[in-house]
Write a protein that binds this DNA or RNA. Structure first.
Length: 571
RNA sequence: CGAAAUAUAGCGCAGUCCGGUAGCGCGUGCGGUUCGGGACCGUAAGGCCGUGGGUUCGAAUCCCACUAUUUCGACCA
């Protein structure tokens, strides 16, 4: 490709909308252009990089006996009614009607399509296990996209679906996919990746893991044990937070606490540790009247995912300030007047006494509150977020919290979809069962964004060889020099004959401009051809990532480039 | 969906307070001098000032509504 013809402008200024490094660089280097909120066009650079990632994924899926298929982007409502997800998924799914007024939707995931495709020709255990996958556009009407390709509404993703007779068989295959994912991240140039236990969310099912690219800008909070293998998404993380503090019970007393409302104010007012306070957190139930009140130790936060699972309702944080049912700022278990309320006590309150809690009366709190003595026996449940310094549920040592970007996930679905959609296979014994399913996703663009996040410097992107849109970037200086012109165009054609993707900077501009653009776009191998080096019949090969420079004779340039590409798969 | 900000040339921005027919830098075309890290000189093109309404002799500027984008929060496989 001739750079002068390459569509997509390179920007000197930082686009004012971009915050994350990958977003800034992909825009500045001309890999993509925003069309609308969370919707981008890719240029040839962006598309080639994505295709390279897709092909790495494709190879790995094929090596796991996957069969590449293609599901439709648009599906009829009835298909999704079978699984119940047409109604259970909210406005992130785009719904519309076709011209005959038939309700349709845009695919945001394809479990239903996968079962629909497989159910009619998979009838016997002899056909299982099998896996089908696709690489295709998904649309999710995200309420808030951000970070360039990190979180978008329209994106390309590989999604795979496997079918099994037994749970053991699924687990074996799950492990095969787990390892394939690890190879994929390594190949595309992402090192800082870990896997964590995750929530099953709208998929339902049993075990699931997310692959996380560790990054402080990541939207997911991860709980990691540095001492053992425990790694979990905060949503489902557990910890030992049990800190007994049992003293002689003192008499319950109502005291004036003025305007002190939140835990920070109350503990400061009373000069006590926030761990000795009972925090009340109120949630509303989506689509229903009534509320959920959680009591938790003052220094801790409620994990909404855990709470949702526990009460089996969609709960959302609720501002009780103007609700006369509650005396906001002074809510406590004792004398709580609110009706139609579920109450939960977090484990963090167990075996602690002489606590401070709201008196359900403005400007008053109770001190020396002892749950069993003053309120009664309660069942303590785990609804707490894990905090840094909590103890690992496996090894008991201190946990750490990190942020990560989800770059892939694998789920054990169980029979949720095969059952609801009536897919049956006959076992060896002639029994008809619903096959057990797994599903496995990777977002292509998000992975590209993470690769750029990890592989860049102050001058621009350092594309890994494996996914670089062009492997070699020829930079001829002084194209008005006949020798430079002919030597560089010969190398250009020779590389093309070798089927190597090559970019040549055929613009008659100053050296600095060419260098800056080459750094920005980030092709891994740069070949500099100039009158100066040609005097010695040489050209200069420079590796973008390491800065390493190799002088090579004109005759040996091609073979040297091939050698570099062969031996430096990791540049 | 809640809070805030922004919207002027391809990109980055000034002009808005205090109304008088739009400017800077980069980029782009042309001519020239340069040219191994974004060089310089000259010259030219490029804007319905987000959209709609209002006030006014006159609106980028004041008022109202809407829309889009961004940030924070809510939400989210």
């Amino acid at each position: 490709m001739r750079l002068s013809k390459l569509v997509g402008e390179r920007l000197k200024d930082i686009p004012s909308d971009a915050k994350m490094k990958n977003h800034i660089l992909l825009l500045r280097a001309g890999y993509m252009k925003q069309v609308a909120n969370g919707i981008y066009s890719l240029t040839a650079l962006g598309q080639k990089a994505c295709l390279n990632i897709e092909n790495i994924i494709r190879d790995e899926m094929n090596s796991c006996e996957g069969q590449e298929v293609k599901f439709p982007v648009v599906m009829p409502k009835e298909l999704w009614d079978l699984s119940g997800r047409y109604s259970s998924i909210g406005s992130e799914m785009v719904r519309f009607v076709d011209r005959t007024n038939r309700p349709m939707l845009l695919g945001m995931t394809h479990e239903e399509a996968a079962v629909h495709l497989a159910k009619n020709w998979v009838n016997s255990y002899t056909q299982l296990p099998c896996m089908i996958y696709q690489i295709q556009t998904k649309f999710r009407d995200e309420p808030r996209s951000r970070g360039g390709l990190i979180r978008v509404r329209e994106f390309t993703m590989k999604d795979a679906y496997s079918f099994h007779i037994t749970q053991d068989d699924l687990e074996d295959y799950y492990d095969v996919m787990f390892k394939a994912y690890e190879r994929i991240y390594k190949k595309i140039g992402l090192k800082n990746v870990i896997s964590v236990k995750s929530d099953n969310g709208m998929f339902g099912g049993n075990a699931s893991h997310e692959f996380m690219y560790l990054n402080p800008m990541g939207e997911d909070e991860l709980v990691i044990c540095p001492h053992c293998s425990y790694r979990s998404n905060q949503e489902v993380a557990e910890s030992k937070i049990y800190e007994k503090k049992i003293e002689e019970m003192l008499p319950l007393e109502e005291i004036y606490t003025a305007q002190a409302k939140d835990i920070a104010e109350v503990s400061k007012f009373l000069k006590i540790d926030s761990k000795d306070c009972v925090k009340a957190v109120v949630f509303a139930i989506k689509g229903e009247t009534g509320s959920v009140v959680c009591f938790i130790r003052g220094d801790r936060e409620v994990n909404e995912t855990k709470l949702r699972k526990l009460c089996k309702k969609e709960v959302v944080p609720y501002d009780a300030t103007n609700d006369s049912e509650f005396c906001a700022g002074n809510i406590g278990p004792l004398n709580l007047k609110a009706k139609n309320t579920q109450i939960y006590f977090d484990l963090s309150l167990k075996d602690r006494n002489n606590l401070v809690t709201g008196a359900n009366r403005a400007e008053y709190h109770l001190v020396n509150f002892n749950i069993e003595r003053d309120y009664g026996n309660v069942e303590y449940v785990d609804i707490s977020k894990v905090k840094s310094g909590d103890l690992c549920p496996i090894c008991g040592k201190e946990l750490e919290i990190s942020n990560g970007i989800e770059i892939g996930n694998i789920f054990q679905l169980g029979t949720k979809y095969s059952k609801s959609m009536g897919m049956f296979v006959k076992t060896k014994d002639g029994e008809e069962i619903n096959p057990i399913m797994g599903c496995y996703g990777i977002g292509v663009g998000r992975n590209l964004a993470c690769v750029v996040e990890e592989n860049s410097d102050e001058n621009g992107i350092c594309m890994p060889l494996s996914i670089a849109p062009y492997k070699v970037h020829i930079v001829p200086l002084r194209l008005d020099d006949d020798n430079v012109s002919s030597v560089s165009s010969k190398l250009y054609h020779d590389l093309q004959l070798q089927k190597i993707e090559v970019l040549i900077d055929d613009r008659e501009v100053m050296a600095g401009v060419k260098f800056a653009d080459a750094d920005l776009m980030g092709m891994p191998i740069r070949v500099l051809i100039s009158p100066r080096s040609l005097k010695n019949n040489e050209m200069e090969i420079k590796l973008r990532k390491t800065g390493e420079t190799i002088m090579v004779s004109t005759n040996n340039a091609l073979s040297k480039i091939l050698e570099i590409m062969d031996t430096n798969k990791n540049i």
